[in-house]
Simulated scan of single mutants.
Amino acid sequence: MGKAVGVLAGSIALLGAVVGAAVAVLTVVFARRVVTPSGAREEDIRIIAVDRPAGRIVIEGHEADMPGRYGFWFEHDAGHARLGDVVEVRDRRVTRSIERVDFGRLERAARGRIEGSLFIGPWELGVPYADVIVPTALGAAPAWEIPADEASDRWVVQVHGRGAKRQEALRAVAPARAAGWNSLLMSYRNDGEAPESIDRRYGLGGTEWEDVVDAVRYARERGAREVVLMGWSMGGAISLQAVLRSTEVREVLSGMILESPAIDWADILRFQGSMIGLPDQMSELVTRLLAAPVAVEVTGLAAPIDLESLDAVARAHEFGVPMLLMASEDDGFVPITGARRFAEARPDLIEFEVFHGARHTKLWNAEPERWEGLIEAWLLRRSVVGTPSGEETEIAG
């Protein structure tokens, strides 16, 4: 421990000689936060009152007034409820409907957190599913396999986002099944379900893509002839890297769906830094730090992360399949600028759908009919014209 502290102190001192001690410390802290999987999720919603007979709850906090239906975890994940739409907003207090309480004593809870994942597991969807294992280089990664109504050789491989789990993608199962596609909801390294990597750190897409390749291989071994990757948030970055780096994926890839994706990490770091009051130059320092050899010592990474190599916009010319790209002007976590520039770089491939009022990865919650309709229609078009190929052939979306 003493040696590690000494190395960290020496690394900070080295940075400090260049940019100043205070800035150096903030840079290291921010960089570690970016690549370190979160532990217990913050309960940032205060519960003011619960009226179970009337089916109402009064809450206060960040994003408490979002439109739509949401999952609500409380009592440190010992309880779960489904919240319906906003009934009233008075001052900063938001009254929402309670659709149901799955477990726990909501009326006794003081705090909770809202999630876009409305469903706890696939058993709630009322369709067949199987708990399966995807073999990966790091070990057995759990997944859910959900077949279409009729036998199909078309698969959607779902890649959830940072800090989320497989449940995030359950919202996409219904439109996939309606279009005749099977779904594989995978887990990946360091997400709390799949095996951990040696460093137990996120690679921001630069390492996790290997697990996507394994998931696609699993689908192929079960008869998949065409595969669509659907990536949520960081899962979008992971999916894009899998396409860029794996011939095995490209051989069966017929398209991609990107929901609130992480396209440009430098842009994301600037945005998130500004949210906590850090100057723009801080994100540039974090970008440089993550790519430098010293990153191994100060962040715990097994290897530096070159964020420029993860920039999908710069490599847009390398993609050759249609994409459905959905993002919100009001995301609040990942700026829409990266998605917009990606869409502008490949208008021949990318169908860009902009939402308003929806928060990060919560497009379905805000506009479920539109969201499901877009995915179903897009997948139906792939069923007609989507032909996977290992070649970098451009297919009009």
Rank of each mutant, 00 (worst) to 15 (best):
E248H: 11
E248N: 12
E248I: 08
V249I: 14
R250F: 08
R250Y: 09
E251R: 15
V252S: 13
V252A: 13
S254N: 05
S254I: 03
S254W: 02
S254R: 13
G255S: 05
M256G: 03
M256W: 03
L258T: 06
E259Q: 07
S260M: 02
P261F: 01
A262W: 00
D264L: 01
D264R: 06
D264C: 08
W265N: 00
A266P: 03
A266S: 12
D267L: 00
L269G: 02
L269A: 10
G273I: 07
G273H: 03
G273K: 02
G277E: 07
L278W: 08
L278N: 03
D280E: 13
Q281W: 15
S283H: 10
E284W: 12
L285F: 14
L285H: 14
V286S: 10
V286T: 11
T287G: 08
R288S: 11
L289V: 07
L289T: 05
A291G: 12
A295P: 09
V296E: 14
V296S: 12
V296K: 14
E297W: 12
V298N: 09
T299G: 07
G300V: 05
L301M: 06
L301V: 02
L301W: 03
A302L: 05
A303V: 10
A303W: 07
A303G: 04
P304C: 05
P304F: 05
P304V: 05
I305N: 04
L307Y: 01
S309Y: 00
S309F: 00
L310V: 05
D311P: 00
D311M: 00
V313W: 02
V313F: 01
A314M: 03
A314G: 13
A316V: 04
A316P: 07
A316Q: 07
A316C: 07
A316H: 06
H317L: 04
H317A: 15
H317W: 06
G320S: 15
P322Y: 14
M323Q: 13
M323E: 02
L324E: 10
M326H: 15
M326L: 15
A327D: 15
A327Q: 15
E329A: 15
E329F: 13
D330L: 11
D330I: 13
D331G: 11
G332Q: 13
G332L: 10
G332F: 07
G332A: 12
F333E: 14
F333C: 07
F333I: 11
V334M: 10
